[in-house]
Design a protein around this nucleic acid. Structure first.
Lengths: 71, 71
DNA sequence: ACTAAATGTTAAGTATATATTACATTATGT
DNA sequence: ACATAATGTAATATATACTTAACATTTAGT
C-alpha cells in the first residue's frame, strides 16, 4: 500500500493543486489522484514533487502494510 | 533526464537481473529496461528496489540535465 | 570445447499513469 | 448574496510502464 504526504506538504506551502501541477508539469487532476492515493506516479514525477516540496522522495512516499500478492 | 544506479548496486549484491526482479516482483526484462534507462518506473517499484538494495530512492534515482519541454 | 546461466534485445500485448473535458460542490472575498 | 477560485469526481482518450515470449550473444563452470 502506497502512502504519501503530498496534500500535507502542499498545504504547508499554500500551493493550490493547479499551482503544484504547473510546477511539476502535470494537470491538477493528476495531483488530485495522487493525493487520493489512487495511483502510483512515475519516479520522475515523484522526484519533481519532492524537489518542489523541498523534501526527499522517501519522505514524501512510502510503502505501508503488507503486499497483497501471494505469488 | 532520469539516471539510476541499479546496475551498480545490483552488482554489489551479486544479484542476477532475474533474482532482483523476483525480489521486487517484476520480470528480468523490466530490470534490464530500467538499467538501460529506457523508462521511468513507478514509485512503488522504485521504493521496492531501494529497499532490496538497501538504499534510499533519492540515491538510487535522480534527475539530471535540463528538461526538454519548453511548454 | 561444451554446457548452462546470464544478459541483450525486440515485438506484441496488457495494465495503468496521465491528459482532456466537463460538471458539481465547497470555500473565499467582496 | 454574489462571483470566482479551488476542489471532488467521472468519462474517455493517449502515453507509457510492465509482461510474455522468443531468439541471439556473452559469460562462467566443468
Amino acid at each position: 500500500m502506497l502512502r504519501n504526504r503530498v496534500k500535507e506538504l502542499r498545504a504547508r506551502y499554500s500551493y493550490t493543486q493547479s499551482e503544484l501541477g504547473k510546477r511539476v508539469d502535470v494537470t491538477r487532476q493528476t495531483i488530485a489522484f495522487i493525493e487520493k492515493g489512487e495511483f502510483s506516479p512515475s519516479i520522475t514525477l515523484a522526484l519533481k514533487l519532492a524537489q518542489v516540496l523541498e523534501t526527499k522522495v522517501d519522505e514524501l512516499f512510502w510503502l505501508e502494510g503488507e503486499e497483497e500478492d501471494e505469488k
